[in-house]
Amino acid sequence: MTPRTPMTGEEVADVLERAADLIEPEGAWIQGAYGQDDDGEPTVSIYALSSSSECHCVLGALAHVVGEDRMYEFADALVPVIGVRDYLGVAPWNDASERTQAEVVAALRSAATAARQQGEGK
């Protein structure tokens, strides 16, 4: 197994921004599922997530951008922004009944800004 090259703050920010862009349009965000499967049905299996899914939860959006094997690397960047203990808290945070699409998009953008600033040593 080849070790991963450490990513720059700008690279992390780019992924987070792309995930935000993916779920920002009306109807593009989902709760209780990663996204849609090949039949357009909500799926709770990240491995059944269709590459043509039109809606995603925050983790599904990250998986769409970087693949399911790497989504948690980027979910870690959300942890301090949304106030959960670790990446395992990201899905329940997304799925909370009081959560809004705007809050999820804002959290991704805030985490992207933080990643950029950290990369710049600020």
Rank of each mutant, 00 (worst) to 15 (best):
A77P: 12
V79N: 09
L78K: 04
P25F: 06
L62N: 01
E26L: 08
R99W: 05
D38Y: 02
A115M: 06
E73G: 06
T100A: 06
C57F: 08
H56N: 14
D37S: 06
S53V: 05
A63G: 02
Q31I: 15
C55Y: 03
M7L: 15
T5G: 09
E103G: 06
A96E: 15
S52E: 13
S52I: 08
V104E: 07
A102P: 05
M71R: 15
R109S: 10
Y47E: 07
Y72V: 00
V66Q: 07
N94F: 06
D86T: 07
A33M: 04
A91I: 05
G119S: 12
Q36M: 14
L78H: 10
P92V: 12
A111S: 03
S51D: 13
R109L: 13
M1A: 13
R70N: 14
Y87C: 09
G9D: 08
L62D: 00
V44Q: 09
T113C: 09
G67K: 11
L78G: 04
P42V: 04
V90C: 14
I46F: 09
E11A: 12
P6D: 02
Q101I: 07
P6V: 13
A106Y: 06
D86E: 05
M7K: 14
D86C: 11
D95S: 15
R70S: 15
A96H: 14
A28Y: 09
C55I: 04
P42F: 01
E11G: 05
R116E: 14
A102Q: 11
A91N: 14
H56P: 11
T2L: 08
T43D: 11
A91H: 04
I30S: 10
S110D: 11
V105I: 13
S52Q: 08
E11R: 11
S50W: 01
E10W: 10
A106V: 03
G60A: 01
V81G: 13
P3M: 02
S53N: 02
E54V: 04
T5Q: 11
P92W: 00
E73T: 05
W93Q: 13
D38K: 09
A106L: 10
T5R: 10
Y47K: 08
Y72I: 06
V58M: 10
A77Q: 00
A106T: 08
E54D: 08
Q117M: 14
V65M: 01
Y72D: 12
L16C: 15
L49S: 00
L88Q: 07
A33Y: 01
D14L: 11
V66C: 12
A107M: 06
V84G: 07
R70A: 14
Q117N: 15
D38I: 04
S51K: 05
S97D: 15
E98L: 09
L49M: 06
V58D: 01
E10M: 05
D69P: 08
I82T: 07
E54S: 07
Q36K: 10
A114Y: 06
R99D: 06
D69C: 05
Q101W: 13
G32P: 01
E68W: 13
A48S: 04
G27R: 03
F74L: 08
S97M: 03
E17R: 15
A19H: 12
V79K: 12
A63E: 00
V65A: 01
E11D: 03
R70K: 10
C55Q: 12
S51A: 10
L108I: 04
V81E: 09
L88G: 05
Q31E: 14
N94Y: 02
L78W: 01
D38W: 04
C57M: 01
G119I: 11
V79A: 11
A61W: 06
Q117T: 03
A20H: 03
A115C: 04
L16F: 11
